[in-house]
Simulated assay, not measured.
Amino acid sequence: MRGARVADIGAGTGIATALLSARGAEVIAVEPGDGMAAQLRRTLPEVPLVRGNGNALPLATSCVDLLTYAQAWHWTDPAHSLPEAARVLRPGGALALWWNTDPHDVPWITEQARRIGRHFGGVYDNRQGSPGYTAPHVFEGVPAVPEHARRTVRWSRTVPLDTHLANLGSHSLFLVHGESAADAFLARERERLLEIFPTGLVEEVYDVLLIVATP
């Protein structure tokens, strides 16, 4: 990774951008949103940032070794974003996509998903994984990759309860059902999670799905 030229597309606030930079890559961030770009500039002032999206990359032809999409590929139209990826990658370059899923074998996470589904009157599968889960919609349009270029990696983080609930409330299902419905669920969920995590620190567990393709 050290010395590689990397473009992080849909960089958001720069979470993946920072990690790529820390590994020694020469990273350029591409982000269309005003708010996200402003936050990225504040937190990573040393990283070059250009405004744009994956359907029309504001990058020169054959300019990067690696293109990354950290939970951002699904915002693109593969009919445009895949040819764009092929255009800006150097010969031998690669396209890396990843997506966080909630593991099916962590009981409190599975129960939380069920509670959300019951509250909002449907099945909550925003990130819910299952055995053999591949989330094909988030990698739509990318050429099939061999097994050695596909990984599922488990990771975890410990965050304050308020952070966990704020992240949960930002999911689309909460937003489309309105503030009152979301607030009612989150208030009850706070009480339930304090029974599991009495210190107020929540251990979130994720399975990240990763593929590396050559478009």
Score class of each variant (00 low, 15 high):
residue 150 R to K: 06
residue 77 D to A: 13
residue 55 N to S: 08
residue 16 A to R: 13
residue 183 D to V: 01
residue 209 L to S: 03
residue 117 G to P: 03
residue 194 L to P: 14
residue 75 W to I: 05
residue 38 A to S: 11
residue 151 R to V: 07
residue 145 V to G: 12
residue 90 R to K: 15
residue 138 V to S: 00
residue 110 T to Y: 07
residue 174 F to T: 01
residue 113 A to G: 13
residue 202 V to C: 01
residue 88 V to A: 08
residue 122 G to E: 12
residue 80 H to Q: 14
residue 14 G to K: 00
residue 191 E to D: 14
residue 43 T to I: 10
residue 20 L to A: 15
residue 33 G to K: 14
residue 201 L to A: 08
residue 112 Q to F: 05
residue 148 H to P: 02
residue 37 A to Y: 03
residue 28 I to Q: 01
residue 207 D to E: 09
residue 110 T to M: 14
residue 105 D to W: 04
residue 95 L to S: 03
residue 167 N to E: 14
residue 192 R to K: 08
residue 196 I to A: 01
residue 33 G to V: 11
residue 118 R to S: 01
residue 22 A to Q: 13
residue 156 S to T: 05
residue 66 L to H: 11
residue 90 R to P: 10
residue 67 L to W: 04
residue 44 L to M: 06
residue 23 R to F: 12
residue 15 I to Q: 13
residue 165 L to N: 08
residue 60 A to Q: 15
residue 57 L to M: 04
residue 20 L to Q: 10
residue 172 S to M: 09
residue 48 P to Q: 15
residue 206 Y to G: 03
residue 184 A to T: 10
residue 138 V to Y: 01
residue 10 G to T: 06
residue 190 R to Y: 00
residue 188 R to L: 07
residue 103 P to Q: 02
residue 11 A to R: 09
residue 156 S to W: 12
residue 25 A to I: 11
residue 198 P to G: 12
residue 43 T to H: 15
residue 59 L to C: 05
residue 119 H to C: 04
residue 125 D to L: 03
residue 182 A to G: 03
residue 46 E to F: 14
residue 215 P to G: 06
residue 168 L to Q: 01
residue 195 E to I: 04
residue 136 P to A: 03
residue 25 A to Q: 06
residue 126 N to Q: 14
residue 57 L to I: 09
residue 81 S to Q: 08
residue 133 Y to N: 10
residue 9 I to H: 05
residue 180 S to V: 11
residue 69 Y to T: 03
residue 197 F to W: 15
residue 138 V to R: 02
residue 47 V to H: 02
residue 124 Y to A: 00
residue 11 A to Y: 05
residue 15 I to W: 12
residue 89 L to E: 14
residue 103 P to I: 04
residue 193 L to M: 08
residue 148 H to F: 03
residue 153 V to R: 02
residue 65 D to M: 11
residue 138 V to P: 01
residue 138 V to W: 00
residue 56 A to L: 12
residue 89 L to Q: 10
residue 29 A to Y: 05
residue 53 N to F: 08
residue 35 G to N: 03
residue 140 E to D: 10
residue 100 N to I: 03
residue 56 A to S: 15
residue 35 G to F: 07
residue 86 A to M: 07
residue 176 V to H: 00
residue 60 A to Y: 09
residue 112 Q to R: 07
residue 112 Q to D: 14
residue 68 T to F: 14
residue 132 G to F: 00
residue 61 T to Y: 10
residue 73 W to L: 10
residue 5 R to F: 03
residue 132 G to K: 06
residue 27 V to I: 09
residue 31 E to Q: 14
residue 157 R to M: 03
residue 83 P to D: 12
residue 137 H to I: 11
residue 185 F to Y: 13
residue 193 L to D: 07
residue 176 V to A: 00
residue 207 D to H: 01
residue 181 A to Y: 12
residue 31 E to V: 02
residue 139 F to Y: 09
residue 19 L to R: 15
residue 115 R to M: 01
residue 133 Y to P: 00
residue 48 P to V: 10
